[in-house]
Amino acid sequence: MKKSVAVLGLGKYGRSIAENLYNMGADVLAVDEDENVINEISSKCTSAVCANLSNEDEVAALGLKNMDIVVTAMGRSLAASIMSVSVAKEQGVPIVVCKASSDRMASILKKVGADKIIDPEGEGGLRSASILMSTSFKEFFALDENMYMIEMNPKKEWIGKNLRELELRKVMNLNVVAIKEKGKNWTHVDPSVPFSASSILLIVVERKDIKKCQ
């Protein structure tokens, strides 16, 4: 089932996460107050709307109650971020993720209901989108422009099977480089030992194959 995500605020970070989410198969509502920005992104998302995100009526009219996730990416506009978080939570959005430009802003947004705070300096749009789209991803790191390292739980269909059975490198081009169980340290993967639901895998993957991990 597709995830529905609203991205509010389309600066560099907001555009990046909106486009990456859309490319990963999400239904994306992109919102900004600049009509030129909306025109530029309209072909790279499901729908694009021009709205004043500091205006309660305009934010309420966006239909956020239909979203699985709302991302507020107005890192320098505290008023717009507070308004968006408040309306999203009032409308029952289960996950609200906020970009914050300072510790003080992060603290305020948490108090009004934000579930996760994004540090745009350390969390690029692709990384954020990948984690939001997957129920398995715990961490996501770029090794270079093409190769990524993902820390994740095994996919449901992998549980109870081992590397020899799954042949992840051959079948999916995924290289499992380490594994750990809850409360233990990372170790090399024994290809004969089945993965459990609590296993955490460290996987190296090419950019084009990231979707296979989700």
Rank of each mutant, 00 (worst) to 15 (best):
K3P: 06
V5A: 02
A6W: 01
A6L: 08
L8F: 01
Y13H: 08
S16V: 03
I17W: 01
E19G: 02
Y22R: 14
Y22L: 14
N23C: 11
A26M: 07
D27P: 01
A30P: 00
A30M: 02
V31K: 08
V31T: 03
E33S: 11
D34W: 02
D34V: 02
E35D: 06
V37L: 14
I41C: 10
S43C: 14
S43Y: 02
K44L: 13
C45T: 09
C50F: 01
N52P: 01
N52E: 02
L53C: 09
D57E: 15
A61M: 04
G63I: 05
L64F: 03
L64V: 03
K65Y: 02
D68M: 05
D68W: 01
I69L: 06
I69V: 14
R76H: 01
L78C: 06
A79C: 10
A80Y: 03
A80M: 06
S81G: 08
I82F: 01
S84K: 05
S84R: 02
V85D: 01
K89N: 07
K89W: 00
K89G: 04
E90V: 04
G92A: 08
P94F: 03
I95E: 12
V96G: 05
V96A: 08
D103K: 11
M105D: 15
S107F: 04
I117Q: 14
I117L: 11
D119C: 11
E121S: 14
E121G: 09
G122H: 15
E123V: 10
G125N: 09
M133H: 14
M133C: 11
M133N: 15
S134L: 10
S136N: 11
F137V: 13
N146P: 00
M147W: 04
I150H: 04
K155C: 12
K155S: 13
K156D: 10
I159L: 07
G160L: 07
K161Q: 11
K161G: 13
L163C: 06
E165C: 10
L166G: 07
K170C: 00
N173E: 14
N173T: 08
L174G: 06
E181N: 13
E181S: 10
K182M: 12
P191A: 15
S192N: 13
V193R: 15
V193E: 06
F195N: 15
F195Q: 12
I200R: 13
V205D: 09
V205G: 06
V205L: 09
R207S: 04
D209T: 10
